[in-house]
Amino acid sequence: MSGPREDDQPLLSVRGLGKRYGDRVGCRDVSFDVWPGEVLAIVGESGSGKTTLLNCISTRLEPTTGAVRYRLRDGQERDLYEMSEAERRLLMRTDWGFVHQNPADGLRMSVSAGANVGERLMAVGQRHYGNIRGTAANWLERVEIAEDRIDDRPRDFSGGMRQRLQIARNLVTGPRLVFMDEPTGGLDVSVQARLLDLVRGLVADLGLAAIVVTHDLAVARLLSHRMIVMKDGAVIEAGLTDRVLDDPQAPYTQLLVSSILQV
């Protein structure tokens, strides 16, 4: 802990991470770092262990082996699985965000959009209705949801709006690290493009670090600075996004890149 600048040290370090489901391997021996303000994409075909890996590093699933260390706001680096559950849950609702592929998993579908965005604020102790509502309205505007929809429930929203609402709900406490699991999955292409544009803008504005799991190489190219490629639970290639996509080294990555339809 003697780095001259905070940015010189990784925000999150994953070392030798593995998860077994009985005899089956979810992922094995994964190691990487994420620096503040950096977007990392995890790509690979379905069943390659991307989501298992994401769940393991976001404390949603306990890994079998390995360690995940995170640098807190006070500069202290902690092993996530040695923290108490109360500390982990506090971290998850203040310093982290988690954007689910299916917005229904990340939203409260039966309460209004404003309450969805305001929930984290209330969870960290805000008790002024006017301020909470003001902040929620502000965030809805940032994710391009009309302010007059603030009292509507997410079940009355389109898929794209739900996903944008989920992003607003996660970013309202100013997290430093956001996990995204196929954020554009299930959306049609024009909506995908708008969402990606939005996410790219927000990540740049807020200086967020993000870990994005996707099977869509276009998403990885647009959003991420670096990427890692997974197959059968293991990392087979890692590097800068443009390097990996323009000059893939591993045979599987070459196959993956060449499988993209050119229109």
């Binding site: 559950e85 109360a86 849950r89 409260r108 309460v111 209004s112 404003g114 309450a115 305001g118 929930e119 984290r120 209330m122 969870a123 960290v124 008790r127 209705y129 909470i132 509502r133 603030i150 009292d151």
Partner: peptide, 22 residues
């Protein structure tokens, strides 16, 4: 039970927020 154990009561205010919003 976990929410009671960890004193995570933000959700209770979500209910009151909904009341005022509606």
């Amino acid at each position: 039970r976990k929410m009671h154990a960890l004193e995570e009561y933000g959700l209770m205010h979500v209910k009151l927020y909904e009341d005022i919003a509606r």
